Amino acid sequence: MRFSVFTASTPEWTPEQAAGILAEQGWDGIEWRITDQQDAAEPGFWAGNRATWPLTGLEDRLDDIARITRESGLAFSGIGGYARCDQHEDVERMLAATARLGAGQVRVTMPRTDTGDYRALFAAARADIAWAAERAAAHGVKALVELHHETITPSASAAFRLLDGLDPEHVGVIHDLGNLVIEGREETLASLQLLGPYLAHVHVKNAAWVPGDPEEDGTVRWHHEWAPLRTGAGDVDAYFRALHAFGYDGWVTCEDFSTDVPLRERTRDDLAYLRAVAARTATTAAA
């Protein structure tokens, strides 16, 4: 396995800082966040993120992205795109950029379930992702669908249904431990087996369900929060045992959105922890 970081989770660093620090810490790769975002007084994961490249004018920045990545010695684990599957012009641009960078694969986002009737959203997305697969083939890259809560593909079963019959050389799935804590979790090994050749990429973060304050009648409503890798509800060891048992040996991209520990310390510790987990669970799987 090779380990990278998605720069959505490094909002305080410029691209040069992100690449340099991650390389110095020993990460193998980087997954750049590319999207037009809102400004913010302070850098945040989703707004004002300094390690994000804007979609507007992207083509003029590709040489800089390639140079910064190359000079750091990091590899591309993929591109963290935000173009939705029905935004064909932007999807085409992201596929072309991925090909030009030699990044191999790029995320194409799915519709949220609160934007329409599920059956209608799913049918339209199937047509869109079939088109994206054809365009990805033309560019020699792969379009990725992430297992993501509150979208039409929160689970492996939903993603498999969406992609079934399309060419797995040019369309695949990002399996995501943390997102599945929130919605869509199925027994991990079974879900990997279901995806089969469509399993293209893995994201690792963690989350926890926490209770709110009791209401007047005693009702307690729970909500999810991002958590450190060690303490969230997702069992990282069990996750890696399943990956080993399935035979997955590709990229594992960390996107730790917890804030308990300062960013530089957090990324350093995440790498040490992931490598330790991967090593001990590989030994267990082999036994």
Results as ranks from 00 to 15, higher is better:
235 D>F: 04
182 I>E: 10
202 V>L: 02
197 P>H: 08
194 L>F: 02
170 H>A: 07
216 E>T: 06
205 K>D: 04
199 L>D: 01
168 P>R: 12
245 A>M: 02
227 A>G: 15
217 D>C: 05
257 F>N: 08
245 A>S: 13
206 N>C: 07
208 A>D: 12
225 E>M: 07
170 H>G: 01
168 P>I: 00
205 K>P: 08
210 V>F: 03
222 W>I: 04
214 P>D: 03
220 V>G: 09
202 V>I: 14
209 W>A: 11
228 P>E: 14
198 Y>H: 13
257 F>V: 05
234 G>I: 00
257 F>P: 03
201 H>F: 06
174 I>Q: 02
248 Y>P: 00
244 H>K: 09
194 L>V: 06
184 G>C: 11
169 E>C: 04
233 A>H: 09
205 K>I: 07
215 E>R: 15
219 T>Q: 12
248 Y>M: 04
248 Y>R: 04
251 W>Q: 03
207 A>P: 01
251 W>C: 04
215 E>I: 06
235 D>R: 04
201 H>S: 02
238 A>P: 06
234 G>L: 05
172 G>K: 05
216 E>F: 06
171 V>N: 07
172 G>A: 09
208 A>M: 12
181 V>Q: 03
251 W>M: 05
183 E>C: 09
244 H>P: 14
247 G>L: 08
252 V>Y: 04
239 Y>D: 05
248 Y>L: 05
175 H>K: 08
225 E>Y: 01
244 H>T: 10
219 T>I: 08
